[in-house]
């Protein structure tokens, strides 16, 4: 059984997945076709938001992924109302214990550490557990002398954890810096959407920053900017192409070529 079937089986109890409906053109896509087409609509070319397991399947060499800190779960550090229920719901809806999956694997035959955020869990927002898992991953990667690849998607810091969430931005930044000072590579892959405190921390701290086409990438929310300035936002504002034009991402890569490009970059950084 392939990695994805094993993982899907574990999280949903079945490998049978319903067809996906494209939000752009309403096409109904059988799941097998959807997966084979890199979670891109075969009719109109729209990118779906990939689940972490789907990304893993598309990225890592089969059978090489070893998950770390799988069971780490958020508590309710500031006793925010209704948060415990929200976490429970997110867990059921996503089949994950939190908004990021971390581990080690081979990509193109090369060892690396990976973190993959999943927007199905509270929009991939960062609370203490997401911050802690990513921090531990960078620390472990520094210890094992592994490069880190991060697939990022997040609405930003998770407000239900208050100041604890905000401080994760600093905590992760510290771990990224230590990993970097050990002479190790960090590739950030920005996918739709990458916003708020994530853009203002580890999304923009990669040695190499890759974006997926048309991904929304920015700091301030679009509605907030409109309300603050009263200005109308230009077409394509804060999209991957906008960020490339303004010099904030190294390249935009199509999803079907992403793994190939990552493997090339890993190889180019091998020092022996």
């Amino acid at each position: 059984m392939s990695t994805i079937k094993t993982i899907l089986n574990t999280i949903t109890g079945t490998v049978e997945q319903p067809p996906r409906i494209c939000k752009k053109c309403s096409a109904e896509i059988p799941y097998a076709d959807y997966l084979a087409n890199h979670c891109i609509c075969p009719e109109c070319g729209a990118y779906f938001r990939m689940r972490a397991v789907e990304r893993l399947d598309a990225t890592v060499d089969k059978g090489t992924f070893q998950e770390i800190d799988k069971k780490l779960k958020s508590k309710n550090p500031i006793k925010f109302p209704d948060y415990a229920e929200k976490l429970e719901k997110a867990e059921k809806a996503s089949g994950l214990s939190e908004g990021v999956v971390c581990g080690t694997a081979k990509v193109g035959g090369m060892d690396c550490a990976l973190f993959i955020m999943d927007s199905a869990f509270m929009m991939g927002s960062m609370g203490t557990v997401v911050g802690e898992k990513i921090t531990r991953l960078f620390e472990k990667a520094a210890q094992l002398r592994l490069p880190v690849i991060g697939f990022i998607t997040s609405g930003g810091a998770r407000m239900q954890e208050g100041i604890y969430s905000l401080m994760q931005m600093a905590k992760v930044s510290g771990a990224v810096k230590r990993h970097s000072e050990a002479g190790l590579l960090y590739i950030a892959v920005l996918t739709d959407p990458t916003t708020g405190g994530i853009t203002a921390s580890f999304a923009m701290q990669g040695d190499i920053i890759i974006a997926e086409p048309k991904a929304l990438i920015g700091f301030a929310g679009q509605r907030v900017i409109e309300q603050t300035t009263g200005e109308k936002l230009p077409a394509g504002f804060q999209r991957a192409e906008f960020q490339l034009e303004h010099g904030f991402v190294d390249l935009i890569e199509e999803r079907p070529r992403m793994t190939y490009t990552l493997a090339k970059l890993l190889a180019l950084h091998q020092t022996h």
């Binding site: 931005m169 930044s173 920015g218 301030a220 504002f237 303004h246 904030f248």
Partner: peptide
């Protein structure tokens, strides 16, 4: 929070300071 601030990398500027 403004269009020009985004064009000049508000997120990056904060990220670099943290780092």
């Amino acid at each position: 929070c403004g269009i020009e601030a985004e064009k000049r990398g508000q997120g990056l500027a904060i990220a670099e300071n943290l780092y």
